[in-house]
Simulated assay, not measured.
Amino acid sequence: MPPAAAALLRCAPAVPFAARSSAVSRSGMARRLVAASAAAGRLAPAYRGLLLDAGGTLLQVARPVAETYASIGRRYGVTKTKKRIMEGFKRAFSAPWPKTLRYQGDGRPFWRIVVAEATDCTDGDYFEEVYQYYAHGDAWRLPTGADAALRELKDAGVKLAVVSNFDTRLRKLLKDLNVSEMFDAIVVSSEVGYEKPSPEIFNIALDQIGVEASKAIHVGDDETADMAGANATGLECWLWGKDVTTFSEIQERILTTDGPQ
């Protein structure tokens, strides 16, 4: 038992157990014991700030992309298999983008190319239906335990930020999933004019949460955009799916006495 809780117990009046239980309940001492135990056992965070990638890390698609493209596409004559749709999607998504920003404004120019390459369908109505599908929170989900882990980190004093290469739909998606209010900063590439791996986008987030790079950690799923970009900024980075696989693990690794304070 933590010393603080033990000290409170020593100060409790010597009365029969049943009477003591009743008195504790009435007086609220039970709540004070729990609070004292929690305070005594709380560990100092290893990092003062947590930066999170959105798509592929904090935000996961509710169902596979190829399945969505195919099911919506049936009404528009899309006949490609889900395997071939996914191959086209990956090919288009990873291709070099000739413009300064991949996601400009609402991101439609980029996503039109991706959808057309994935499905061989250039029907404007089809594209708009796919685009609008991903503009709502129902199309996305948070990883298991993410909400609880983020709240624990925030309660421990860790500053939270989203740093994402995304279009202007992101803020609504975070709101739909009831997590936007937890973040001290939401930095979106289409809004600030920089995309990861550019150090500028990370520095904007660090400035907004008031934490130095050496005292923050970034978590993302891309070795170039997230890992290389964060490292170039002086940030340590954990790759989602490799270095960490759950938000509970992120929470546990941050809420430790080891690491920068």
Score class of each variant (00 low, 15 high):
3 P>R: 09
6 A>M: 15
8 L>M: 14
9 L>D: 05
14 A>G: 10
15 V>G: 07
15 V>R: 15
15 V>W: 10
21 S>D: 03
22 S>F: 13
24 V>I: 15
27 S>Y: 06
31 R>D: 12
36 A>C: 00
40 A>C: 01
40 A>E: 14
46 A>T: 00
47 Y>I: 00
47 Y>V: 07
48 R>Q: 14
50 L>C: 10
50 L>E: 06
54 A>P: 07
56 G>E: 02
59 L>N: 08
60 Q>P: 07
70 A>S: 12
71 S>M: 06
74 R>L: 08
75 R>P: 01
75 R>W: 06
79 T>V: 14
79 T>A: 15
86 M>P: 02
90 K>A: 06
95 A>Y: 07
101 L>P: 09
104 Q>N: 05
105 G>W: 05
113 I>C: 11
114 V>F: 08
114 V>K: 05
115 V>N: 03
124 G>F: 04
128 E>T: 12
134 Y>Q: 01
136 H>E: 13
139 A>W: 02
144 T>Q: 14
146 A>M: 07
151 R>C: 13
152 E>H: 11
154 K>S: 13
154 K>M: 03
162 V>Y: 09
163 V>A: 13
166 F>E: 12
168 T>P: 01
169 R>F: 07
180 S>G: 10
186 I>T: 12
186 I>Y: 03
187 V>E: 00
193 G>V: 02
196 K>Y: 04
199 P>I: 01
200 E>R: 13
206 L>F: 03
208 Q>K: 15
213 A>I: 08
217 I>E: 00
219 V>P: 04
220 G>P: 05
223 E>M: 13
236 E>K: 14
236 E>W: 03
237 C>Q: 04
239 L>F: 10
241 G>C: 08
242 K>W: 00
244 V>A: 01
251 Q>D: 11
